[in-house]
Amino acid sequence: MLLFIGKVSILFIIYVMAVRLLGKSALAQLTAHDFGALFFIAYLLFGSIEVNGMLQAIIGGATILLLYLAITKLTLWNKLNKYLIGEPTFFIKHGKIMSHNLKKSRYTLSELMSIIRTNGYFDINDVDYALLEPNGEISVLPKKDKGFITPSHLDLNIDDNGLPIVVIVEGEIQRHNLKSINKNEDWLINELDSLGYSQLNKIFLATVRDKDLLLKVYTEH
């Protein structure tokens, strides 16, 4: 049994290291070759493990869980964090493309341009910073004169009316959500009656804002 636990532990650590070596782009983009690499590495490594019975399966699963928790704990230690998780990588810094970092991270300029466009910027000259985060996502910060205009830029005071909470889905009252805004079914029924909705089964969706308690009702068309 100790041999089995040791084998599972070693192969799991090798797999984690292999995924880490594939780079952050493999986790974010998961192209056909990224998926193929991840799948076949897992298949070849763990396919060699022979599990005899339910007991070994449970022990193997528990071993991987404990290793996962141990690695998660180690990531909280700053000295190991950059090795286990990684650090942000600049793709654009002060408006300049860091071509060396692109090649190092196995990103093409076309891929970077595509991601910048999905962030709403169609001209790379509008971007001041672009960073590849440890989880594989790319954060984009525009230049000061190219960012989106917000109410604060215009010195406008906009009231925060709260988050819409779903209280009815396809005629079913969501009691837990009602409780989260300190309301009950009687209150909801009264509010619906005041808006002219007497039959729950005709309501497709209803939401209540958690601050001003504004009720909005949507019916099927």
Rank of each mutant, 00 (worst) to 15 (best):
Y121D: 02
N157L: 13
Y107N: 02
S198H: 15
E191A: 13
G120E: 03
D34F: 06
I189H: 04
D123H: 10
Y129D: 04
I49N: 04
N125G: 13
G120M: 04
I181W: 01
I97Q: 01
M113V: 05
Y121T: 00
S114E: 10
V208K: 05
L66E: 01
L65A: 11
V140A: 03
I165E: 13
M1G: 11
K24S: 04
H153E: 14
E170G: 08
L44N: 07
H153R: 15
I116M: 09
A42T: 09
H33Q: 15
I64N: 00
M1D: 11
L2E: 10
Q199N: 10
K202N: 12
K7W: 07
T89I: 09
L80A: 15
L141E: 09
I189K: 11
Y83D: 00
E191P: 08
E220F: 13
D210R: 14
W77M: 15
Y68F: 12
V19N: 07
S25P: 01
I168L: 03
Y107Q: 07
H33F: 12
I14P: 02
I158N: 09
L213K: 13
G53A: 14
G6N: 10
S194V: 02
T75H: 07
E133G: 02
D128W: 08
D34S: 12
A62V: 15
E133D: 04
I189P: 02
E185A: 10
S194I: 03
K82S: 08
R117F: 05
K146F: 13
L112S: 00
S110C: 00
K183L: 14
A57S: 10
F4R: 02
A57V: 06
A62E: 05
I138H: 01
N135M: 05
V217D: 11
L112G: 02
D159W: 00
I116A: 07
E87F: 07
N125L: 08
W187I: 12
T207C: 08
I173Q: 02
K146N: 13
L67F: 03
D145L: 06
P142N: 10
I71Y: 00
I116P: 02
D126Y: 07
N52P: 06
F90I: 06
I10C: 03
N81Q: 10
D128V: 11
D128T: 11
R175M: 12
N135D: 13
D145C: 07
P164A: 07
K179D: 14
L112N: 00
A32Y: 09
A42V: 04
I168F: 04
L192C: 08
T207L: 12
F46A: 00
L76V: 10
L80H: 12
N78G: 12
L213H: 15
W187P: 08
I189S: 05
S99V: 09
A32L: 08
L80Y: 15
L76N: 12
A70Q: 08
E170M: 05
A57F: 12
E185P: 09
I10P: 00
V166K: 12
